[in-house]
Write a protein that binds this DNA or RNA. Structure first.
Length: 509
RNA sequence: GGCUCCGUGGCCAAGUGGCUAAGGCAGCGGAUUGCAAAUCCGCCAUCACCGGUUCGAAUCCGGUCGGAGCCUCCA
């Protein structure tokens, strides 16, 4: 039984779907007015993993991540850069997609853009007016919060408490907490025709319209960052439920925000931007140290797998404090997996990455009767699945992966499989490795071989063979001075030598 | 001011009423090794503080201190 924490009820609930075997997930994606930073990647990685796990459990999952490509910030950016809003949105969407790809996020089924759903948005707005939940004033349309008795149930606020200054449109609103569904055009802003004149959609309505179009009036999971609970999701929920007269989603899931390690405030948050504007000259340095910029750099230096693993080691609802040191540590931790995969390949002559994971939980059971080793593997697998069943506890689940690695290494050591092995032993080893393959695939890690370290080309390989041969000769004749000089010299240039029973190996790093 | 959340070993981090408080990084001791590397074995916490509830609490309740988020655009 899978349990999911629901922001609406503030507790974990048994996971049940609207439609047998099917799951619809809608995740609020970015407003594409600037390059994405690492904080933007948290949600996609988590919900990519959620989909993988639900699919593993036999559900047919549809994951939708929207792109907001019309909004105030985009309009400002477009004036700033002298480019069309469309051109900026396109550029930043490409950047976003490139980053998702590098982080192994490949489970998204639909990426609707607000500008492609203007018709649906207008229809939704009309529906709300017809039902008495919205009103139009001078070309603007506002949602009438007072007409919605349940307003505030997601963020636990009363309509009064929810009202801010009311913004620039305050004078035209009935109440300061009312929010725009449709904004009348100003100056040279991009606009579309509507029953209320030229204008553009408000921020929240696009998600209500697009989720309805793709997933229906009521779907299973709605995700986003914790910062979206109010006002965005509160307003979305109000719009959709007033319009349809039924629950919009079963489970509201919110991920914790990423925080910079060297100062307060979330990555990409308000203080970030204030600092950036005040100290434009050192922007790069500040942004880099806070992870708010240079996501491409981070991916370049650390690799997507390390970043993904770093995020998944923490529970999705907690705050993650970003630091490059944390990323480094995640990288060190991943090394033990890579070492084991190499060991497996030396023993079986087959490639870990060419193994096909079992797509379904029920097919990934392993026959462990009479074999203590496989029983231990099965126990770790069981523990892993229990962690994941419990509100997608990826942090707990990774510990089972490490346990699995140790258990497999111990088995290899105890039976000295690197020297000789029986067919039974090889079969057991393979089963344990396939289990590791299945479980890590759920987290979206180890899906493909890591890129070859820079400098590892054919010539290097030949030179290394030569050096290793020379060193082996030196060792055989007990000339350890020469042998160690070779090894230490290589260490200095970043090459590690490993003397194993079946020969000497080397690696960069 | 209102609404949330968090405080577990040197660092990161699971666990939210009951077997010996996961796992990772770092460190220490041992096996292995010519010495290393890799691997394995072992060691390293009573859970911010105070009080309460309970047969029993890191886990529930109250308070104190400390930190974070939202209330305005935000993943």
């Amino acid at each position: 039984m899978i349990r999911v924490y629901n922001t609406l009820s503030k507790q974990k609930e048994e996971f049940q779907t609207n439609e047998e075997g099917k799951v619809g997930i809608y995740l609020c994606g970015p407003t594409v007015y600037d390059k994405s930073h690492i904080g933007h990647m948290v949600g996609p990685i988590i919900f990519d993993t959620v989909k993988r796990y639900l699919s593993f459990n036999g559900y047919d999952v549809t994951l939708v991540v929207n792109i907001t490509d019309v909004d105030d910030k985009l309009i400002m950016k477009s004036r700033e850069r002298g480019l069309s809003m469309d051109a900026i949105a396109k550029e930043m969407t490409e950047d976003y997609l490139k980053n998702l790809n590098a982080l192994g996020v490949d489970q998204i089924d639909h990426m609707p853009k607000a500008t492609e759903y203007i018709g649906e948005i207008i229809q939704f707005t009309k529906d709300l007016i017809d039902k008495g939940f919205a009103y139009d004033v001078d070309g603007d349309v506002f949602f009438d919060v007072a007409a919605n008795a349940c307003y505030g149930k997601l963020s636990n606020r009363s309509a009064d408490a929810a009202q801010g200054e009311g913004g620039e449109a305050a004078s035209r609103k009935k109440s300061a907490s009312d929010f725009a569904l449709w904004k009348s055009v100003k100056d040279d802003e991009p606009s579309w025709d509507s029953p209320w004149g030229k204008g553009r959609p408000g921020w929240h309505i696009e998600c209500s319209a697009m989720s309805r179009s793709i997933l229906g009036e009521s779907f299973d999971i709605h995700g986003g960052g914790l910062d979206l609970v109010f006002p965005h999701h509160e307003n979305e929920l109000a719009q959709s439920e007033c319009c349809h007269g039924k629950p919009m989603v079963r489970y509201w899931m919110h991920n914790g925000l990423m925080r910079a390690g060297d100062s307060t405030g979330k990555v990409g948050g308000r203080s970030d931007r204030e600092q950036d504007s005040e100290q434009a000259t050192v922007e790069t340095k500040i942004s880099r140290s806070k992870g708010a910029g240079g996501l491409a750099d981070l991916i370049e230096t650390h690799g997507g797998e390390r970043i993904r693993f770093f995020l998944l080691r923490t529970h999705y609802r907690s705050t993650i404090v970003f630091s490059e040191a944390g990323l480094e540590e995640a990288g060190t931790a991943l090394e033990s997996f890579y070492r084991l995969f190499e060991r497996y390949e030396r023993i079986t002559k087959s490639d870990f990455y060419s193994l096909t994971p079992n797509p379904l939980r029920e097919h990934s059971n392993l026959p462990a009767e009479g074999c203590e080793f496989l029983q231990q593997v099965a126990a770790h697998r069981q523990s892993y699945l229990e962690h994941m069943d419990d509100d997608f506890n990826t942090g707990g689940a990774t510990s089972d992966l490490f346990d699995l690695v140790r258990t497999i290494n111990r088995f290899i050591d105890q039976h000295d499989l690197e020297s000789s092995s029986s067919e039974e032993q090889l079969a057991a080893l393979s089963m344990s490795i396939v289990t590791l393959r299945d479980l890590s695939a759920i987290l979206g890690i180890f899906t493909s071989a890591p890129a070859e370290a820079a400098g590892n080309d054919a010539l290097t390989g030949q030179l290394m063979e030569l050096l290793i041969a020379l060193r082996s000769e030196a060792r055989e004749s007990k000339n350890f001075e020469i042998a160690d000089r070779i090894r230490d010299g290589l260490a200095e240039i970043g090459v590690t030598i490993e003397d194993r029973k079946d020969g000497t190996g080397w690696r960069i790093g």
